[in-house]
Amino acid sequence: MHPTGSEALSPPPRQRNRRIDLLRGVAILLVLFHHFCIAYPLNHSSLAMLLTPDGVRAVARNGNYGVTLFFVISGFLITGNALARWGSLAALDARSFYAFRIARIVPCLLLLLCVVNALALAGLPIFATHIPGMSPLAAMIRANLAALTFSTNVFIAHHGWTNYALGVLWSLSVEEVFYITFPFVALLLRRLPFLLVFWALIALIGPFYRMAHQNDESGFLFAYFASFDGIAIGCIAAVLASRWQLNEQLARILQPVVLAGMITLYLYRSIGGTNIWGVSAMALGTALLLIASVPHAEGRFISHVRLLRTVEWTGRLSYELYLFHLIILGLLRTILPASTISATGPDRLMMLAVFFAASCGVSSLIGRFFAEPLNQTLRARLKRAATKNGN
């Protein structure tokens, strides 16, 4: 039966998957480390007891693969939640689907724009939008419009990295354009075999699109069709997980093999040299880990290791962390430019710790006192409106 009214806005009957949060935590920490090392390069002296210079570069340079993990997880959760909520994708309620996305995504996006605009107007150059031949105000308006229309990746392709803190919105643009079309595709194709073929075609387009744009970073990393394949693979994985449970013994063998392969790919070369099929391989590896995680959503082993619990916690904050960490890093760069921080002592390691702690602290406050309350309030109002309309 097609759910309407309050049924369509009721939460899906799924418990939070701790293993997925752990995987999201790994992804966001890779992104944070990548961005920190761009701002404050870490050399041999500062990490002598942890990693060699080549090791630091290998970990830091491929933070964009962390975004690939996010894309797959996003497609997996969105599709899995839709199946749990409506029973089948053919019964998906488009209005409710968009309402859920707006309630979760828009409040933090608007807050980010307000904060970045305020810091720019306060005279902090790193938060201003710089487009040659355009006034700062006009450039700011253009950057805001790109963010609100989910075209920041296109904006970057045309104008470059014109706004430091808003650059992260390229991936949100990719996701939301994919999800704008998600209900139309689901309701048009209706049958799962047709949907699986459609998503498989999107997944296949990805590496060939990247291959055709190797001389253009915005083309092979940030374009819609260069990134849609990760989300599509996540959607396919969710359908498979809903209909097929991986054998436990096979999962125990498969997971470490998949992890070893993903780690090897991550460390092997820069994403600039491996992205064509590397993004596809990383996405497929993530999908296998997600499928294997479904029967073990409770993640009992995580409870016994404090480090894993911490990483899991950052995974729960991954959206807020992703949006707001460059504000923290931009403020640090304004107060303590890299040129004033010794490149040979422990100072930059201390800065890294401060950056992680401040980013997590601010994101936790935003999530607890702003994002989640607004999310719940918006959903409650939508539920009441749907119930009223149903009556």
Results as ranks from 00 to 15, higher is better:
A226Q: 03
F222K: 02
L204K: 01
W277K: 00
L50E: 08
M140E: 13
M49I: 11
S10E: 13
A84T: 01
F127T: 09
A287V: 04
A232E: 09
F70E: 01
F178V: 04
L204D: 00
A386W: 03
N163G: 08
I302Q: 00
F178M: 06
G299V: 13
R384N: 07
S364E: 15
H130G: 00
N64Y: 13
R333S: 12
V257C: 14
T387N: 05
L22I: 02
A60I: 03
T314F: 14
G261M: 12
G367A: 08
L42T: 05
T79A: 07
C114T: 08
E175K: 01
P193Q: 02
Y266D: 03
R300C: 08
F182I: 04
Y40H: 10
H159V: 03
F97N: 12
H2I: 11
V279K: 01
A241V: 05
T4G: 14
T286F: 05
E312M: 13
G133D: 01
F355Y: 15
R381A: 11
F182L: 09
N215D: 15
T68W: 03
A287I: 09
V115Y: 00
A90W: 09
S45D: 15
A386F: 10
T52K: 11
L221H: 13
N375Y: 12
Q214C: 09
E7W: 04
L336S: 14
